[in-house]
Design a binder for these strands. Sequence first.
DNA 1: CCCGAGATTATACGAGTGGACAACCGGATT
DNA 2: AATCCGGTTGTCCACTCGTATAATCTCGGG
Lengths: 212, 212
Amino acid sequence: MPRARSQPAGATRDEIVVAALGAFSEKGFEGASTRAIAGRAGVNHGLIPYYFGSKEKLWQAAVNLAFEELEANIEAVTGEEGLGKRERAARMIRAYVRFIARRPEFVHLMNEEGKRRGPRMRWLVDRHVKPLYHAVTRLLEGARAGGGGVLDIEPIHFFYILAGASGLFFHQAEECKRVTGVDPFSEDVVEAHAAAVEQLLLGPKPHEDGST
Amino acid sequence: MPRARSQPAGATRDEIVVAALGAFSEKGFEGASTRAIAGRAGVNHGLIPYYFGSKEKLWQAAVNLAFEELEANIEAVTGEEGLGKRERAARMIRAYVRFIARRPEFVHLMNEEGKRRGPRMRWLVDRHVKPLYHAVTRLLEGARAGGGGVLDIEPIHFFYILAGASGLFFHQAEECKRVTGVDPFSEDVVEAHAAAVEQLLLGPKPHEDGST
DNA sequence: CCCGAGATTATACGAGTGGACAACCGGATT
DNA sequence: AATCCGGTTGTCCACTCGTATAATCTCGGG
């Protein structure tokens, strides 16, 4: 029988996950201390073992949160019926760029954990990256066969070029600000980047001719 | 007056820098302990404050080493006289991809430090990234005006798309192995990636017609 | 009104961390 | 042979880390 405390059930837990996502993305797994995460969430650091069992499990919860948001964003845009294959791929690309501009934590997490072997990387890949990879690859293959960009590039290169070309600009946003003075998160800069990636990867938009 | 010890002068110091480059790229600045670096180099950890003063200075030395290698690789290929603008840009791209395939530590360092504000990022940008950015941008602008890829994408997007499209594949190489089973460092895979990036960013090679 | 259980806090522990420092070593100088 | 000094080692310190644990708090149900 659930209690009716001042806080709704699980509120503290959720705050910790949100704080953890921010902290892990900024400082990495080792760099983000459980005390810093707890402080960010405004709770006692003893609550982390209490709710999650370990720092590792907390990290998994944060990653799950990030991927849930990603999938919601992508599916909302590519799920529609009656889209051309190129248009579907283009929407996916633009949705992805906009998503990581709003949640750069996602790219930070991926770049942090994808680079080294280890239990966290294995968990991340098996749980999240493999399905994502195959979904994206299927979509891109469709666009390729459908006429758009015509480039005969294998899916594996396409995938990492897409992810890299989209993500680095926002992953290194602080660096970019200092190098160029431009803030990647500025709205029109985000749109310009999305357009650039789409154009490069899918080729120029076919205006009315949708044939091969 | 220099001594003639069993080891040539500075050998120990150099070994520490090499070990540090490897350790920092694998574990990040916080994750790589001075003791681990010393152990990797086979020396006592007290030598790090002795030679470098601090962990931070050691990190700078490691970054300097990485950039020296990069610049040597790029200049060896783009420095030639009598190259067309597109050809010069194409060589730069291929040389860069091959370089990071051989020294993924470079990408790891850049991705690690470019993502957060802080003294290391400021030092890295002012000392290394700004000159690199302007050199690359000048080269790409030349190729653009010279007819090649014709894409009207601003330099800032071009730069980060190039860096991201080239780098992520090798930065996430361990992840890629687990997702796809393909080893990005395999020689022909490296070449395929270089070709893919070049083709996407500069457009298909003009065979004999170099006009607009 | 008090009890009990989940939620929260405070404290403690052992393992690491970066850095400081004195002792030590061995070949070069005198 | 005695001295010197850069290179090297071991030890120590204050601090932070993740986590375990016991005490405390805050409620709703008896």
